[in-house]
Simulated assay, not measured.
Amino acid sequence: MLLLAVLALTAADSSTPAPIYQRTDVMEITRKADMQTVDGTADYFTGKVTITGQFQRPDPSRVSGAIARFEPGARTAWHAHPAGQTLIVTDGVGWTQVAGGPKLEFHAGDVLWCPADRKHWHGATPHEAMTHIAIQETVNGSPVTWMEKVTDEEYLAPLGKE
């Protein structure tokens, strides 16, 4: 990790109140070469999934995230995030579904939002890999609640209409 000094900004008016969060004077950079890649556990994923650069920011932040790569046919189990989840798709084509809703297709460059506490899944299509950056917040000590696996019937069901 390389730490770089960040220049402190001065307020134009010294009577301006200080921000309520704690300021730091360094920027933290995690280099790609230093990021760990782990296999997604079979408890929460079907197929080959790798997770790189997992992070959890310290208080007062609640943000956590990682880069996930799904090989063709790979997918998450059903799960929910207490404060929702943002997925930024960087490569490939994938499918996603919120319980009770249509199965949707997404592509590299798309940004997905799953609302708080909504049961959902996401993964690659059967014939193309997919990579996304996942960003979510921790609430009461957890960023996710894992549920049952997505069945082959659910995964292979026809796409819905948006």
Score class of each variant (00 low, 15 high):
P60D: 12
Q136E: 10
V150K: 06
H127G: 05
F70Q: 06
A74K: 01
A99Y: 06
H127K: 10
L112D: 03
P102Q: 10
A68C: 08
P158H: 12
P17N: 05
A5L: 08
R31E: 15
H132A: 00
L87M: 13
E105L: 06
E153L: 05
L4T: 11
S61K: 08
W121H: 07
A66I: 01
R62F: 08
K103D: 09
D43V: 03
F55S: 04
G141W: 01
Y21M: 10
D91A: 12
A66D: 04
Q36R: 08
S15I: 01
G109N: 10
S64T: 10
G109R: 10
A99Q: 14
T46K: 14
D39F: 04
G47P: 03
T30E: 13
V38M: 11
V144L: 09
A12M: 11
A80Q: 12
T151S: 15
L156V: 02
R57F: 10
R31P: 03
Q54F: 13
T86S: 08
G123P: 02
D91H: 13
I133Q: 00
H81W: 06
E154I: 05
E128I: 00
K119I: 11
E28P: 03
A77P: 02
T96H: 14
V6T: 09
L2G: 03
L2F: 04
Q85M: 08
G65A: 03
L87P: 03
G160L: 07
A83F: 07
P102G: 12
D117S: 09
A68D: 05
E128L: 03
K119V: 12
C114M: 12
Q22R: 07
T30D: 08
W95G: 00
G65N: 03
L4N: 13
L7D: 15
I29A: 08
H127T: 12
S142K: 15
L104A: 07
P102E: 15
T138L: 01
L87D: 05
T86V: 15
V89M: 08
S64I: 02
I135C: 09
H107N: 12
Y21R: 13
A33W: 02
G141F: 02
K119M: 13
S142F: 03
T37E: 12
T86Q: 05
K103Q: 14
T52S: 12
W95C: 00
R62S: 07
A18Q: 11
V38S: 13
V89T: 09
S14W: 04
E154M: 00
A68Q: 07
D34Q: 15
D34R: 10
